[in-house]
Design a protein around this nucleic acid. Sequence first.
DNA 1: GAAAAAAGGTGATAAAACTCACTTTTTGGG
DNA 2: CCCAAAAAGTGAGTTTTATCACCTTTTTTC
Lengths: 234, 234
Amino acid sequence: MSIKGIFPIDNWDFNSESVLTDLPEKDLQLLMFHQSRQQYKKGEIIFREGAYPSGIFLIEEGKVKKYKTDKHGKEHIIYVANRGELIGYHAILSEDRFPDSAAALEECLVAFIPREDFITAVRESEVLSKRLLKTLSHEFTVLANSLTLLAHKSVRERLAMQLVIIREKYKVNFQPGMPVEINMGRDDLASLVGTARENVVRILSEFKEEGILETRGRKIIITDVQKLIAIAND
Amino acid sequence: MSIKGIFPIDNWDFNSESVLTDLPEKDLQLLMFHQSRQQYKKGEIIFREGAYPSGIFLIEEGKVKKYKTDKHGKEHIIYVANRGELIGYHAILSEDRFPDSAAALEECLVAFIPREDFITAVRESEVLSKRLLKTLSHEFTVLANSLTLLAHKSVRERLAMQLVIIREKYKVNFQPGMPVEINMGRDDLASLVGTARENVVRILSEFKEEGILETRGRKIIITDVQKLIAIAND
DNA sequence: GAAAAAAGGTGATAAAACTCACTTTTTGGG
DNA sequence: CCCAAAAAGTGAGTTTTATCACCTTTTTTC
């Protein structure tokens, strides 16, 4: 049974770096032995920053935001994880508590893998541990990039960039050829970009003026990705 | 990297050990087999962003900045690595090019370990690969923290925080009891905080007014760490 | 140890971003 | 299908941050 077989949906998009892609059958079974599925409604919290991890989570359907909340309750989204991605494993590997929280951005189906099974799988499977090393290093790079982005780009440029990135993630929900709709609250978009909602809304209007995108209610349809990329790159 | 997860700066643990601490003798020998030492003068580049990695580096003496340079030549420091730390291994593990550059912040002694030796050591040594997984997860957490910091804190707060962090790193250069001198150019400090030199200088003067620190030329001596921590935490 | 170069420091001004108070539109449950 | 609640969107005023042009001090080099 391939990885595609054990999941509810068949047309998996694995161009993203899923840790589990092509994992040997026996390793996968080790990992999924005591797995249990759970449904999360939009906004529901999957795990909380600072909690001790009892296992890891595999997103089988939907999108999840990873975020941190500061003292004033303001939340900052670090990353949007998509279908096929594994989350919560940093805490287990670093033998520490969750560094961030995770919540469903939309209706989600998530598999829970107990701590012990994950640890066993990492110990037993050379492929998995090598894959994890690679993924972690890669994630690190991506995060380091965001860091410089935040530090040196204007809000306008950052929003442009995040729109491009987010659009890729929403592609998964649509047939090829169909226009991709980004369906994300302005507040979430703002905390992803690292600014206030008002700024996001304003710049979104500017982009609309400039013929870069259209909005249909909360939904955003990007019509000129190239222009956005140009803005993002200065 | 050396900072323990969760937010408030006063429970961060700065003295985490190197990846190599207590590594079994045979693993260490595997790693250090073809090692070669080199001296770097202040400002000299150890490796460049975008280059293909031919090995990794162990800092035996001195401090190294890891940074990225944007299109306009502006540089942003991601991390300051200290004596005992291993750098440049992300690129090898992610099988990609260097995501950032590294340069000596002061006179440095650095050991170069060839790519093949590192790969062999990771494959052969379970301790090393486990240690790397842990370190990487931890580094990820630290970086995620910086990200939220940049996103939600003012320049003043960010500078306060970085001063506290940097001070810890300069401790290794001084005897216990002796006042710790931060000996870092204002430009470097600015690109660590993510702002312009002028702002750093100005806020530094404010801090001096408020009795938080003293300057002796370029050197900064912090006299009231607690106050800085208070500012950093809002 | 003097001259040159590099780094540190200051003030004024412009631009970007944030905040608050408010209106309009969208959404989802009864 | 309607209504209340939530989310989106707008405008004005304030604060923060960036930039420029310049001077002063420190460091380096010969």
